[in-house]
Every structure is written in structure tokens, then in C-alpha cells.
């Protein structure tokens, strides 16, 4: 399937996102966000889900968008923060936390880098009415940094450090993001990956295997690799 430029539609979403606005999203839609987003990754997940610590704020009253992100931030002398660039971190590592986290926070938009396994969308996100947005590129740190208007708060900075702390960002025209999974759990990455896979064999045509193999090319550790 070849997508034409005009098929890439651009959608603005106000946060917290309503179910109706989420229903408009399809894999490959371009999204910009307005409102508040919060960052949380393994450090925060671990505190709340495994160590049963209370959330520092009732997040769902403010926002339902969780950004897998570590900002390039530094503190000013007056105690405020400077955010230079903002880039997502790879989400697949967090999939084991997602179900409980979405339940605990009523999060409906997960933003990160590179998506999660397609099954997670069907089994975890879609049943909870949540979608996944991926950053573009992925190094669009300056564009996203420009969309962050203000640091509203930062929680657990001392305990978790800049990268893992929970940042609350006020954002406007924050993007672009691409919808990976929609409310039905369809996945753009999976769809594109399958298309790419169809051409891979051709690239290898006529290339012999190397003289010495590696484990991974055979999974039986009793095999010799020659």
C-alpha cells in the first residue's frame, strides 16, 4: 500500500483526551497535543506499582497522556528548570508495566519511541481505550522542546534523577507524533514491518552463509558453528 501525502492527516488533540477525539486516530495519522503531559518510565512505574507508593498527584485530573521520555533539562539558580530538547525513549522495555499503570492512572495516550509489540496493543492498550503515539524520526528533540511551554512540576527528582523523574509539562502544538496503534489495536509498525519483510529476501539473494556461524543463527548450544 503506497500512502499519498494527502492521506497523512493532521489531528490536534486537547488533553486530557476525550474518547471521541481518540476515536478519530488511525495508524499513520499525524498528531499534535495541547494541554499537559507527564513523563514516567521504569523508575516511576517501579515506585508506584512494585513499591506501592502513592502517586504524587492525582494525574488523571490533569492529563491522560504518558510520555516515555527523559528530557535534556538543567536547573536554573532560581529553582526553575530549563528544558532544551525532548526525545522519547524506546517503549518496548516498559510493556510489562503498562496494564497496571493504565489502570492506576486512567492514562489513554502512551507516547514513546518505536512502539510496543503488536500483541500488547490488542491485549493491553485497546481494551483499556488507550492508543500509542510514536515520536517521529526519532531525534526531533528541538521540535518537541519547542512545544514544551512550561515545566509545571517535577516529582521524585532527587530520588530518581533528571532522566527518571516524573515531569509535568504544559505543552502546545506539541508534536508531530504518528499514531502507531488506534483504539482497535491496529499497529502501524506491524503493518509497515510486514510490507518491508516482503522485500527482505530479495536483498539476500545469492549471498552465501559465512564460514563460521554464531549462536543466534542456531539456537541449539550443542551445535558446532562451522
Amino acid at each position: 500500500m503506497v500512502r499519498q501525502d494527502d492521506m497523512l492527516e493532521k489531528i490536534d488533540i486537547d488533553l486530557p483526551a476525550s474518547p471521541e477525539s481518540l476515536a478519530k486516530l488511525k495508524p499513520g495519522s499525524i498528531v499534535y497535543l495541547n494541554g499537559v503531559v507527564y513523563t514516567a518510565r521504569e523508575g516511576v512505574y517501579d515506585r508506584v506499582l512494585n513499591h506501592k507508593e502513592a502517586l504524587p498527584v492525582p494525574i488523571h485530573e490533569v492529563t491522560n497522556a504518558n510520555f516515555h521520555c527523559s528530557p535534556a533539562a538543567s536547573s536554573n539558580a532560581d529553582g526553575s528548570y530549563r528544558i532544551g530538547a525532548v526525545t522519547a525513549t524506546a517503549s518496548f522495555r516498559f510493556s510489562k508495566y503498562m496494564g497496571d499503570w493504565l489502570d492506576a492512572t486512567k492514562t489513554k495516550i502512551v507516547i514513546g519511541k518505536g512502539g510496543m509489540p503488536a500483541d500488547d496493543y490488542k491485549d493491553i492498550l485497546a481494551p483499556r481505550g488507550a492508543v500509542y503515539l510514536t515520536t517521529v524520526g526519532y531525534g526531533t528533540g528541538a521540535l518537541l522542546g519547542q512545544g514544551v511551554r512550561k515545566v509545571l512540576a517535577v516529582h521524585w527528582l532527587e530520588e530518581l534523577g533528571i532522566a527518571q523523574a516524573m515531569w509535568m509539562f504544559e505543552v502546545s502544538n506539541f508534536g508531530p507524533f504518528l499514531v502507531d496503534s488506534d483504539l482497535e489495536g491496529n499497529s502501524l509498525f506491524a503493518e509497515q514491518g510486514e510490507l518491508v519483510n516482503q522485500s527482505i529476501e530479495k536483498a539476500y539473494e545469492g549471498l552465501r552463509k559465512p564460514a563460521l556461524l554464531r549462536y543466534g543463527e542456531t539456537d541449539d548450544r550443542k551445535d558446532e558453528l562451522i
Binding site: G84, A85, T87, G141, Q146
Partner: peptide
């Protein structure tokens, strides 16, 4: 944008 606003091009 990075050059115009003197921001790092990528947060990583």
C-alpha cells in the same frame, strides 16, 4: 528549529 532556538537537536 535546533539552530534557530539554540536547542540540542535531540534530547538524547
Amino acid at each position: 528549529t535546533a539552530t534557530a532556538e539554540r536547542r540540542p537537536m535531540c534530547a538524547d
